[in-house]
Nucleic acid binder design. Structure first.
Length: 784
DNA sequence: GATCCTCGAGTTCA
DNA sequence: CTCGAGGATC
């Protein structure tokens, strides 16, 4: 066999590469690994470099992009790129179908339906099977010549496959950026300080309009064909669905979601089907498109101005909108966290009118570089909470400056500070700041804390603003008269007509109800009480752990912080925060006040026997986080000294004789020098003794059918709330977690379960539906 | 020190 | 729901 000529080898490599592209982008069946593709491409590149005369424009090597063009040339579309009429409701779709049925006098109509991608419409021109020019839609009549950029998109064939194509063929379709690639691209950009794309659509549009095709080549763009323009020297099938099939045969990617459906019912069913699948698709869509399938019908229907009468876009409610940001304001939370949020001109997104959206923190504002007056993109996707995803830089008014975090709290004027290495800025006013006081009372009254029904944000705001309630304990002093007085002063302040007068007599029922609710809340549990105090880092689950492990408020109140680390999932940070809270006399006073005003903790019990495992001197020394005192050193000290007192009394050299190296011994001695540390050690030693006395030896481990199992609840349940289901599962020994991970044993998926269910399926975790859950609960004696 | 998981905190609208 | 960060684990 004679060795192949360079020309033959080049042709072979090109064929292999284009074949791989076709399989990957059109058939969606990758045939060779990426590395192999790269290897072939490099081989071709080398051959072409050695034989420059053999380089052609349609070679796959030319996809990497050439040097920048000055600007885009204009391209006049031989056949205008039309726009589509829109339908936003089922009625509009019915009208559309009726119009066609009336005009064509046909009883039944067949449509081709396809998803409407949220990308950029383009037109591709092929002459004798070779890609020669590509253009953006522009105004429909004239677009921009982006041929070089389009060449870099591997999903666009440079030469047509198969046979029978017209001498001149224009193909229309959508360039888009797949979601996963968009995420990956942004993640990379964030890490390397590059420019973050606002959304896949902007990403696609921006990428195509790069003057330097080498930049476009690096963007993960894809393409779907959905129609044709000019056709000369050949024929296309006479129905839309057959045309799509033909395009696919010639090497164009066509959405696999395209379907032929009959009548209005078929269209609307398709709409719902795609709508349900929307969040799980690999790309963003903003609706679906219906086209009368047969060519005769299309020709007879014709056009209105610049849109065909035989096609319509049925839109989904928009998940993203543009609007103008009027100003960036800040909010002060319970912990003093100062969070910026955007006040925007009202805009309709995802079915509701949005005027405000969180900006999370100062870093986020800087990352997006949003400024007052900017036009911004707001998203309200599957989640409910609106979010500013990006700025439209072209619309930025002149003279704006980057936003800056205020230096003083807008509510109390205290300095706003940021801990080293932290993202959040905080108002340093603590409980002198009315905003923080107010928020902490709202937290205290909330459902998951003390659960004072009817005491919401509004009342707390009034009570706090009028100085009727300053601390949580003040709530338990309130009388009906206080509340009526508050109402009177609020009416006076706002100039509103008092409802009390309108009714002709004094309306007091609401006040009585509220006082009653406050009274009911007096009877509570340790976990709710601890959570309600609003201690930093002590949320629901930490509060619960503390309640379970220590069981007694009075015990917890006097423990020094290192002992809290004996509870699983409580580490240095959380323990210190709790200790710091308890060290403040004001907080202890507040607890006393609450108890004095009748708050009763109903579930007091001795500490868990499991505590004993870590109650020894060595562990205590480790927990104290003394510099250079590791586990090993702590063990040495503990075996050499019988008690904390002995340690406190010992001279430095005794630490050395105990076996400590001199640097450890010195560090420990230096630590003890500090009076506060010595006292902490002494207090901790005493607390340790007390705990050993009150903690039962026996570790009573209740056994349930779900012992040691981690369960995640997702979606809505019909028979009970998720919280109730969680309690029942916990009663059977399960640990109820909030998110699915490898450690999850079981996921209970209710109605409309979302990402968690998907993740569970991905990880192959056992999944139950509500019926299975109910059957299980029934079987184990805790049915609904 | 890196990595995985979980918790805490803040958040919108009707 | 999402982000950031604390805790556990290797």
């Amino acid at each position: 066999m004679t060795p192949p000529t360079p020309a033959a080898r080049i042709a072979d490599l090109r064929r292999q590469l284009e074949d791989a592209n076709y399989r990957y982008h059109v058939l969606d069946e990758p045939s060779i690994p990426d590395a192999e593709y790269d290897r072939l491409l490099r081989a071709l590149d080398e051959l072409e470099a050695a034989h420059p005369d053999l380089v052609t424009a349609d070679s796959p090597t030319q996809r990497v992009g050439n040097a920048p063009a000055g600007k885009f040339a204009e391209v006049r579309h031989a056949i205008p790129m039309l726009s589509l009429g829109n339908a936003f409701s089922d009625e509009e779709v019915q009208d559309f179908v009726r119009r066609i049925a009336d005009k064509l006098k046909r009883p039944s109509l067949r449509f081709s339906a396809e998803p409407k991608l949220d990308g950029l419409a383009i037109s591709l021109r092929y002459e004798n099977g070779a890609f020669v020019q590509g253009a953006t839609r522009g105004d429909g009549a004239t677009g921009e010549d982006v041929t070089l950029n389009l060449r870099t998109i591997k999903a666009i064939p440079l030469t047509l496959r198969g046979t029978g194509w017209p001498a001149v063929l224009e193909v229309r379709g959508e360039v888009y950026m797949p979601r996963a690639d968009f995420e990956k691209y942004n993640e990379h950009a964030r890490k390397h300080g590059g420019k973050v794309l606002a959304n896949p659509r902007n990403g696609a549009a921006g990428s195509l309009r790069q003057l330097d095709p080498r930049i476009t080549a690096q963007r993960p763009l894809a393409f779907f064909a959905y129609g044709t323009g000019l056709v000369e020297g050949g024929e296309l099938p006479d129905s839309h669905s057959a045309t799509l099939k033909q395009l696919r045969g010639w090497g164009f990617p066509v959405s696999s979601l395209s379907e032929v459906v009959d009548g209005v019912d078929g269209l609307l069913a398709y709409y719902r089907r795609i709508g349900d699948a929307r969040d799980g698709l690999a790309f963003d869509i903003d609706g679906v498109v219906y086209k009368l399938d047969d060519g005769d019908g299309q020709r007879e229907m014709g056009f209105v101005s610049r849109a065909p009468r035989w096609a319509i876009a049925h839109k989904f409610p928009a998940q993203e909108q543009m609007t103008v940001l009027e100003s960036i304001e800040v909010n002060v939370g319970r912990t003093g966290a100062v969070t910026p949020w955007a006040l925007m001109q009202p805009v309709h997104v995802g079915g509701v009118t949005v005027t405000r959206a969180t900006l999370h923190n100062a870093d986020q504002v800087a990352r997006l570089d949003v400024r007052n007056g900017d036009t911004v993109i707001v998203r309200r996707a599957g989640d409910v909470i609106p979010e500013v995803v990006g700025v439209v830089p072209e619309r930025r008014p002149a003279g704006t400056v980057p936003w800056q975090m205020p230096t003083q709290c807008p509510v109390c004027g205290s300095e706003i500070v940021r801990e080293e290495g932290e993202a959040v800025w905080r108002c340093s006013g603590e409980l002198t700041c009315p905003a923080q006081r107010k928020e902490s009372i709202i937290h205290f009254a909330s459902r998951r804390a003390m659960d004072i029904e009817g005491l919401g944000e509004r009342f707390v705001e009034d009570l706090s603003d009028l100085d009727i309630v300053q601390h949580v304990a003040d709530l338990y002093r309130l009388t009906v008269d206080d509340l009526l007085e508050m109402k009177r002063r609020v009416d006076e302040r706002d100039g509103t007509t008092p409802e009390t007068v309108k009714a002709g007599k004094v309306a007091t029922k609401w006040a009585e109800n509220l006082i009653e609710a406050i009274d009911r809340s007096r009877q509570t549990t340790l976990e709710r009480f601890l959570f309600g105090l609003g201690i930093q880092h002590v949320g629901e689950s930490t509060a619960k752990a503390l309640a379970v492990w220590f069981g007694d408020l009075q015990l917890i109140r006097r423990l020094p912080w290192p002992l809290f680390k004996r509870v699983p999932d409580i580490g240095g940070e959380v323990a210190r925060s709790l200790g710091h809270f308890l060290d403040q006399p004001g907080n202890q006073q507040a607890i006393d006040d609450l108890l004095a005003r009748g708050v009763v903790i109903g579930d007091t019990h001795p500490p868990s026997g499991k505590l004993r495992a870590g109650l020894d001197l060595a562990t205590l020394l480790v927990d104290l986080e003394i510099p250079k005192v590791t586990r090993v050193r702590a063990e040495q000290l503990a075996s050499a000294f019988p008690s904390v007192q002995a340690l406190l009394d010992a001279p430095v050299h005794n630490f050395v004789t105990a076996g400590l190296p001199s640097d450890s011994a010195n560090a420990f001695a230096a630590w003890l020098e500090d009076e506060a540390n010595a006292q902490l050690l002494s207090r901790s030693g005493a607390a340790l003794e007390t705990l050993l006395e009150v903690t039962p030896e026996d570790v009573a481990t209740a056994t349930g059918p779900l012992d040691g199992k981690t369960v995640v609840l997702t979606g809505g349940l019909a028979a009970m709330s998720r919280d109730e289901a969680g309690e029942k599962l916990e009663a059977l020994g399960a640990k109820v977690a909030g998110s699915v991970s490898k450690k999850t044993h079981l996921v209970v998926a209710g109605e409309a379960a979302g990402s968690k269910l998907a993740k569970a399926q991905e990880l192959g975790i056992e999944i139950w539906d509500e019926a299975q859950l109910l059957a299980f609960l029934e079987k184990h004696g805790s049915g609904a």
